[in-house]
Design a protein around this nucleic acid. Structure first.
Lengths: 194, 194, 194, 194
DNA sequence: CATGAATGAGGCTTCATTCAT
DNA sequence: AATGAATGAAGCCTCATTCAT
């Protein structure tokens, strides 16, 4: 009975890869870098991931599930939506995006070179779902009267663009002031002025 | 002491490089690719740019001047700012950002790997200047009464984040509907609801 | 002191190795390939053979005994040799060589790279013994009058060369016509025209 | 005006490769070995041959033309064929085969692993042509009366097998006695006893 | 100036072997 | 005895850079 593949080791490699891919991009990151960061030998990386590409693919696609859970579950509570719930939802989004620095940089890397990475497709699909949710929120808000007349499509595009831009344009995200700025600005996209 | 080399050939190489760097990133782009795209032999690239790095550096920094001209010259007409002028200014910004696809992808590439590229510094500086302008606009707008009470700093951060996000999150920028969405949404960041 | 390990498993590994070495050569054949062909895990291969080299060595040397038995036992019946017995002996040789496809390919592999494989020595020794037998046959045949005047040495060399060439030059050995051709041609080397 | 690719350097690499492939086989031979043997740097090999495989392919196929010239041109003088001409032709073949040691070892390598190397096809084609020539010779010889009744097909197969076997089974080819043995034995395949 | 042959460092990947389970 | 995870040496190939023509 030999040692079975250790899920823990896989995770360490995965995390090391995500960290390095996000800081240095795909090509600049070497398997050796990853193995050292993960504290395993060079060859071990290939025990858990067939290719460098497969490892990158995992880094792009696997965290998407967590995103789906965090971002799309608001769908079920649309009926009870209020202006306060919206505000807390937006705050949650901002916080979540600012937290997932490593992952979103990798996503940014893929988005920036869409012809190069086939993973783009999955990201597009997720973006689509997210914008659908936003549109449903806007529609509900207008019906309930706590959001001003707006084009739900436009807010869908604008809100996602803003979340990404907030995360990707600035480096200094420990800054509380910045976080608050983003929360307020995001609400303005929904037409909420304060 | 102008170099006697052909400025036209330099430009062709530069444009080819910008195009390829923006689509494939720094490491994936080879000098040979660039030389072929530019229609010169690959040795010629080294006649005009000492290194691959120097060529990349040029791609990141040289277009910044045009950005400065387009984006920062509003500073001089703050006195005569009106709500309509603001609307047209924002529209201009959106259009300009959406137009400069290749360049902004390269910028995105650098921003995404700030530790890797020393050019980040110059981009930061530009961002600072741009946000200063935005703050001045907001202050003026509030004083003149056509903008609601806001925190100028927050709008500075938010507006730049939005412009970048708009450019970087979506691929399909020929879309007119998308452009309009962004214009309207951008105005909302300033507190302008329609 | 027999090893307690399963002789059956050893044989399966051995046969798998012989088959794969013969088709793909030494370097192209991996231990994993062999283990899969043999239906065991690849660690098990190392239980029965210390090295890859040891396994190859076994493949080259172990079947030699069977060759010795089949090819050299004619030595004892030289006294009663007749032209008909010679014909049947030659037919037997041809058949035997054509049968041992896998093994002879491995031998061919070693012969083709004699500096590389130390096993060459044993093969040389066997060749020497075989040619001695042929020479004895020729001498006997001439003395008994059923073989024409010949140089026994020349026939020794020529006959072995022919047997190897017959086996190694063509792929299509199921062909009966080919087998017959070889039998007739081999006899001609002995000076027997029909 | 840059240096054009030097045909001389290509040939040096080619010869080094042929020599090493023939002694050590495909996999055991490294590009580094070849470059050192050829007296060029590692990278230069790739200037002249795209792959290791391409280099091997060249080693197998390019010398075939010389073989065609040497072995197949007898076709034109069939009308004037005599027993003496046949003897000298056979002697020529033997000499030629014994001379081309490096090349024929590579051929042997391919023949020994026909499923592995696509070059096998071309070798088969050449063998076909050569055997056609042999058959024509035999038919002519029988018609002219200097060769005994024989099956031309059988001699075709047998003669080629013998030439290959002569070359491949023994290492010691400087030996004059061996060469003579092969010449005499080869003639016996045609039914010529002395 | 333009060209592209020559160079060799560095990356990905394969695979024999070791050894804990 | 059997297994297969871990290791790292070694090979192929790419590509930035140099430099002779």
């Amino acid at each position: 009975m030999a040692k079975p593949k250790s899920p823990k080791k896989r995770e360490e490699i995965f995390n090391a890869a995500l960290r390095l891919f996000s800081r240095n991009g795909y090509s600049k990151t070497t398997i050796k870098d990853i193995s050292e960061e993960a504290g395993v030998s060079f060859g071990t990386v290939f025990t858990y991931f067939e290719h460098k590409e497969a490892l990158f693919h995992a880094c792009v696609t696997e965290p998407l599930d967590e995103f789906r859970n965090h971002l799309l579950d608001a769908k079920e509570s649309l009926d009870t939506l209020t202006i306060d719930k919206l505000k807390s939802l937006v705050a949650q989004h901002i916080t979540f995006f600012l937290e997932k620095e490593d992952y979103l940089r990798v996503v940014q890397y893929v988005i920036g070179q869409p012809e190069r990475f086939s993973e783009m497709e999955m990201l597009d699909e997720f973006a689509e779902q997210f914008m659908e949710l936003v549109k449903a929120i806007v529609t509900t808000g207008m019906r309930k009267g706590f959001l001003p007349e707006s084009d739900p499509d436009e807010i869908g595009y604008g809100y996602l663009a803003f979340l990404m831009g907030a995360r990707l344009t600035f480096t200094d995200h420990a800054n509380v002031q910045l976080t608050n700025a983003f929360k307020n600005q995001a609400l303005r996209l929904f037409g909420v002025l304060d």
